[in-house]
Design a protein around this nucleic acid. Structure first.
Lengths: 190, 190
DNA sequence: CAATCTCGAGAACGCTCGTTCTCACGAGAC
DNA sequence: GTCTCGTGAGAACGAGCGTTCTCGAGATTG
């Protein structure tokens, strides 16, 4: 078990880096084999097909995203600070060497409207994020509409930062979010 | 000439619909041939390779976008109204039957970070849009920062509407934009 | 009519890629 | 030592796709 788990982790890590950097359809199983150092036979014994590997990669990204977001928010005591921590988290991420946008948005662009597994995972990830923002907004005394506005800023920052290769979009998103929050909460909140 | 121009238009229209609906790499030249009704020979006589066809499709999208945006803004007398007209334009677009997001964002996700023609066109389109918003913002008495915030809302609305299949994100973006504009302009402006 | 040219339809070619198969090698069982 | 089994390396297979080639029908010219 531990042996298979480690192989699994190696494969997912290798595939994740390649898919994120080059796009999913640009990366063949041969590249995953070379990067992971495992044989095709072993890869296929763990992931019966490429789509299962893709799903595993996206799932892992979700966990990393959720963990990172939770960590960033944990540094803030109240919901207002936690909402703003989202944009600080984005800023850190945008500044990482290999940042290339949100892999969910990217794969959505890749796979067309085919209502397949990837589409479901992308929608789920975005919906869950929106729910998180909505919860924090309500806790802070804001509305669901405020939450949607804040989510828009986060989404826009991700694509703009990726396309323009400019991490400072996170700062603009944060400033706009702060203004909208204060406006919705009557200009003074914790 | 006219004959070739018409063939060219037919090919671009067919390719545009297919690329937008299914993603560029999912659509082969055979599909373009079937949809356009022209032979492969004729297609290749006009577009020497697929990438030239892709570039033509993206260029055409740019023109459609620019025209549509200009029309929407033309209905408004002042820069504030013109800024908000952007989101009305987005709303109309989101409600169209076959809306599937911004083809530039989608192709960016498809083609990886390969600094090729597609990447350049995507960056150019976004940069030009940001410049337009900045010009309007300054005309309205706002700042470049306000312009960036408004651009973020527009970008976020496009991806959120596409992924969630929900046109009402345009309304949220518009409301947020109005709040940010009024805040930046001292809560009362034309 | 004969010769030539144009162009569409579809086959063909070469390449990539997902997936499977072959084969040989090394480890354990007796 | 020998047999068997699992496994890795790489070949092989089949499909899809970008691109080119072949062939034949119809138009044009003399």
């Amino acid at each position: 078990m531990t042996d298979e788990d480690e192989a699994r982790a190696r494969i997912v890590a290798a595939a994740d880096a390649l898919y994120y950097a080059r796009g999913i359809h640009e990366v063949g199983m041969d590249a995953v084999r070379d990067a992971s150092g495992l044989s095709l036979k072993r890869i296929y014994s763990i992931f019966p097909s490429k789509v299962e590997l893709v799903v595993a990669v996206l799932s892992e990204r979700r966990h990393v995203w959720d963990r990172g977001l939770a960590q960033a928010m944990a540094t803030q005591p109240g919901p207002r600070g936690q909402l703003l921590a989202i944009y600080d988290f984005l800023r850190d991420w945008f500044e990482s060497e290999d940042f290339r946008g949100c892999i969910f948005i990217n794969s959505f662009g890749e796979s067309g409207p085919t209502s397949d597994l990837v589409g479901v995972m992308v929608r789920t990830q975005k919906a869950d994020f929106q729910r998180l923002v909505e919860r924090l907004s309500l806790e802070a005394g804001g509305t669901a509409t405020l939450a949607r506005q804040l989510a828009l800023l986060a989404e826009g920052a991700q694509t703009s930062a990726a396309i323009g290769n400019d991490p400072s979009w996170a700062d603009d998103a944060r400033a706009a979010a702060e203004a909208l929050i204060d406006l919705a909460l009557g200009r003074r909140a914790a």
